[in-house]
Each structure stands twice: as structure tokens, then as C-alpha cells.
Design a protein around this nucleic acid. Structure first.
Lengths: 195, 195
DNA sequence: CTGCTATAGTACAAAAAGTATCATTATTTG
DNA sequence: CAAATAATGATACTTTTTGTACTATAGCAG
């Protein structure tokens, strides 16, 4: 009885979220409104309101649309420096060459106000953290790093510094910086912290 | 001729920004409007528009009002662990016990869209970075750390991890974590990174 | 083809943003 | 103290935006 797969639904949804994402990048969260999407796409306001009765839902879906499917891969076959280099390159590329550097701060700010944004942010970050963590665990299994290495803290250092430099300081994330960053992390992983 | 110091100006400005700050904490950037401040304070809209002709200026001033005057002190008289502990305690306190954890993400997100917010953010962060950096430089002068220590990177690690944990992961910043964080930083500062 | 339903269009109501004018009131200055 | 001055509050108005309701059209499924 029901038309469960009308292609128009996916089409308008996709077109609307594409436009909303562009608006989010260019003008920020307050500009992501039904009317703005209407002006950008020609999709009528009534249709947009049917898809997203609340502005908040439109924004959350735009965030999800922006993050898209994950492109993370295991990369834990060693050696450690190579794996870490892969992970850091992946993160730096996302921050330098995708809209992520503009989208992420908006999600982070929304997460302080909104439960759903908080959950989305945790999913996105948790995935990356888990992958890097597995890299260290694998390296530990191969005896590349000391057995008592504080893996969780190493993971957080690995990821937090590029985010801080890019989002908060507006600093560059270049090849030279990446190399010395990895070297410092490895130095901590390979030598026991003295008591 | 001119009345250069009418106390009413400072009074309304202060009352309006107090209310705007509360609104910013509770409902985020989009809610910081002249009308919202009017409802919260009773200050007439016409007066508010005279003080801040553009909404953007109201928001920036609210940011500045939130950050307030700096409370950083030198704290570079050693030993290094004590100085770092002072700095980290100061930062963690700001993140745990003031509205800063809610305000900072809003400023960071605004900074990606707005030049003035970017400048304000750089000032706020630059001040803290400079203080921590001076701590390391002083420790180096006292021969507490190796001469080739990568001070700038140590400073960024010192600061970025607590921000990342609090703002992005929503994790706790407790006493135990602080101690091991400082220990890792010191380990890097006291031992030369092997080539 | 026929029925269903997503979309577009229109109209409308409510709220908010922004501007302008004027009376009132508090403060400065002489 | 008294007058000049400037800030505030109140009101009115225009424009824009938001949100809702209803209708006609057009595309898709069965």
C-alpha cells in the first residue's frame, strides 16, 4: 500500500542537505534555516518543513551529512611510526583539505548545548580514537613499545594537538611538524616514564 | 561640553552583557539578540540598538565580557613540575568551574567565520601559551630540562590535551590525570628525543 | 491506468529585526 | 542650585523571518 521508496524523497533530502552544508560552511549555524535552503535550492519551504519540522533536526542532519561515511582503515600492521604516520596524515588531510575544519567547531559548539550533537561528536571522535588506540595495542603486542606505556594518553596527545593547532590557533599542520609530533609520541611510547 | 562619564552608560552596558552572557551559556550564539537581552533585563530595545547597532558587535562584546580580565601570573620560579602544576590547575579550574567550557566552543566556532572573533581567540590563547612557554624557558635557564627540548611543542601538548578532553570528549580533568599529564610532559622535557 | 503522496504554490498569522521619533529622566557642567 | 545635555524608555512602523494550513499539480507504485 505504501510507497516506501519514492526517489523524490531521497533526492530532495540530498539536495537540501548539500545546500545546508554549503550554508553552514559559509555563514555558520545561525544561517542554516529552512528559508535559506529554499533560496539556495528552489525546494519549497513547505516541503522542507515536512522533511524537518524543527530547525534543530535540519542542523543535526546537516552535521551528519557533513561527516559522511567513515573512511578510516585499520592501519595497524606496523611498524608503529608508519601506522601513526598514516593516522596523522589522514587527520591532517581532513583538517587541511576538507570542510571539516569549518564544520567541526560548529558541531563542538552545538554539542555543549545539544544532546544529539554531543552524541554525534562522541561517535565521530570515538571512532578515530579507537583506531589509533588499536595501533598502539598492536605495537605493544609486537613489543615495539614498553609494556606500561600509557596508551590512552598517547592517543589523546596524538589527536588533540593537531585539532588544537588547527581549530584554536589557526596554525599550519605541515610535514615537518607531523614528523616531530610522531617522534615525540614514539619517544614516550618507547621509553618508560620514570617515577 | 560632552558628558564623557555618564554612569548610566556603564550600568546598562554591564547589565546587558551580563544577561547576554547568561543567554549565550544557556541557549548559544543564535539566541544572543537585542530582543532576548531586552526581555531578560528590561532595558529597552532602542537603548540596546544604540549601544550595539549590529548583532555581531553585541556577540563579540559578550565574548569579551565572558573572558574578562586575565588572571594569569608568571609562576616561573621553579621547580618545573610546580610551575606546570600551577598552570594546569589554573586551566583545569577554568574549564571545570567557570562558564569557560561553554563559552570557549562558541568563540572557537565564531572564529572560523569572523575575523574579530579570531583575533580575540588568538589573544586569549596567546596569553596562556606565552606564560607556559616562559615557564619552560625559565626551567631551561635553570638547567632543569635539556637544552634542545622542543618547547613550543611541549607547550601545545600541555594545553591542547585538557581542551580536547573537556570540550571535544566531555571527559573529566581530575587530579590523577593532571599528575600523569605533567609527568609525561616533563619526561619529554628532561630527556632528549633520540634521533 | 488508477490511487497515492511528495512537491509547489499560496495565503496567513505570529514573531523578530531594524529604524525613526519623541517625551522623560538623570547627569554633567557652569 | 539651575540649565544644558545626553541617555533612556516608549511608541509606532516597516520589513523580514518563522511557522502553519490549505490546495492544486505532478510523479511514482501497484
Amino acid at each position: 500500500m505504501k510507497k516506501i521508496d519514492d526517489p523524490r524523497i531521497a533526492a530532495t533530502r540530498s539536495a537540501a542537505l548539500d545546500a545546508a552544508l554549503g550554508i553552514l560552511q559559509d555563514e555558520g549555524v545561525p544561517a542554516v534555516t529552512h528559508s535559506a535552503v529554499n533560496k539556495a535550492t528552489g525546494i519549497s519551504r513547505s516541503t522542507l518543513y515536512r522533511h524537518w519540522p524543527e530547525t534543530k533536526r535540519l542542523l543535526i542532519d546537516t552535521f551528519k551529512h557533513a561527516s559522511g561515511p567513515s573512511k578510516l582503515k585499520p592501519a595497524a600492521d606496523g611498524p608503529l611510526r608508519a601506522d601513526l604516520n598514516w593516522h596523522l596524515t589522514h587527520l591532517v588531510t581532513a583538517l587541511n583539505e576538507t570542510p571539516w575544519a569549518k564544520i567541526a567547531p560548529q558541531i563542538i559548539a552545538s554539542a555543549t548545548m545539544d544532546e544529539e550533537a554531543q552524541i554525534l561528536l562522541n561517535e565521530l571522535m570515538g571512532e578515530r580514537i579507537a583506531f589509533v588506540e588499536n595501533t598502539f595495542i598492536a605495537a605493544q603486542a609486537r613489543n615495539e613499545i614498553v609494556s606500561g606505556a600509557p596508551i590512552r594518553q598517547l592517543v589523546e596527545m596524538m589527536i588533540s594537538v593537531p585539532y588544537f593547532r588547527k581549530l584554536i590557533l589557526g596554525a599550519t599542520l605541515d610535514k615537518g611538524w607531523m614528523e616531530s609530533h610522531i617522534e615525540m609520541i614514539c619517544s614516550l611510547a618507547e621509553n618508560p616514564v620514570p617515577e
